[in-house]
């Protein structure tokens, strides 16, 4: 697994650092997201209205939320995009016919990007949180960073499950465009779970990361009861793991039968 992560890191950093456009988008993304959030926030009502409704100043809330969203979307993007990219590069026959374990291979894919995002986060989100809450909030701020990382990791098995099954549907690249807005809504980052209608809350609860995100919100609100949501998140991750595995093997089987692995 370590070897696979090292390999993915090599690929990720080469892709990001040697491709200027990606480097620019990658570093601009958090700022654009924050700007968007501020725009949405200000059109929805005043800062005070937000504070009285949610119980926290909108700035730390949105900063942490956009950060966790960035982490989670990053993970789902990396996992869902890789099969498409491999097809494009012509590397998929060599990847598929490698003796490595498909699920470990897939789990390793998002880790480099996740790590970079965490580094970016600890230099941007962390200082903002400390500024707002004071240095007494250090432990909480670090927990928020950790929970954001966990939120990303927790999504990986579900993303793998979706990515494998997406091929049954055909045009797998479209799935990214569909998954993104769904995650945006159902993760409960900007739209906390407790204000969702029952149906949406149900869907949201099925996403492992929605629970760790709930834990982040609890920490932000000064609560400490986070072990239960973390536990649920991890349990759901474990639950989706065999499904992800199955989904990958269905994907491979289907490709190997139809001759869909292009050289």
């Amino acid at each position: 697994m370590l070897g696979l992560i090292r390999a993915e890191a090599l690929l990720f950093y080469a892709e990001v650092l040697r491709r200027k456009s990606i480097l620019v988008t990658f570093s601009l993304f958090p700022y654009l997201l924050t700007l968007l959030i501020l725009l949405i926030g200000s059109s929805a009502g005043s800062f005070n209205a937000f504070e009285s409704k949610v119980g926290i100043s909108p700035v730390p809330f949105f900063i942490s939320s956009s950060f966790v969203l960035m982490v989670v979307l990053g993970v789902s993007d990396e996992i869902l995009w890789r099969p498409i990219y491999n097809e494009e590069m012509g590397t998929s026959p060599y990847v598929v016919s490698s003796p490595s374990n498909p699920i470990l291979r897939s789990l390793a894919i998002p880790i480099p990007r996740l790590s970079l995002t965490l580094v970016l986060g600890s230099t941007s989100v962390l200082p903002v949180l400390l500024y707002y809450f004071g240095s007494g909030f250090l432990l909480e701020s670090i927990s928020i960073m950790g929970l954001a990382a966990l939120s990303g990791l927790a999504l990986s098995s579900l993303a793998i499950a979706i990515s494998g099954l997406a091929t049954l549907w055909g045009e797998s690249w479209r799935i990214i465009q569909v998954i993104r807005p769904l995650l945006f809504i159902f993760l409960g980052v900007f739209y906390p779970k407790h204000v969702m209608p029952t149906f949406a809350r149900l869907i949201s609860s099925l996403i492992p990361s929605s629970h760790t995100i709930e834990a982040i919100q609890t920490v932000l609100l000064g609560g400490s009861n986070i072990l239960v949501p973390i536990g649920i998140g991890v349990a759901l991750f474990m639950f989706y793991l065999p499904i992800g595995q199955k989904s990958l093997s269905i994907w491979e089987r289907k490709k190997l039968r139809s001759g869909g692995i292009r050289t």
Binding site: A7, L10, A14, Y94
Partner: peptide, 20 residues
């Protein structure tokens, strides 16, 4: 085809050795 364009030849081989 069959390699990552943004990796050097050597890095590509390193990548695939890890996969192997």
């Amino acid at each position: 085809k069959g390699f990552y364009g943004k990796l050097t030849g050597k890095e590509n081989l390193e990548y695939f050795s890890a996969l192997y």
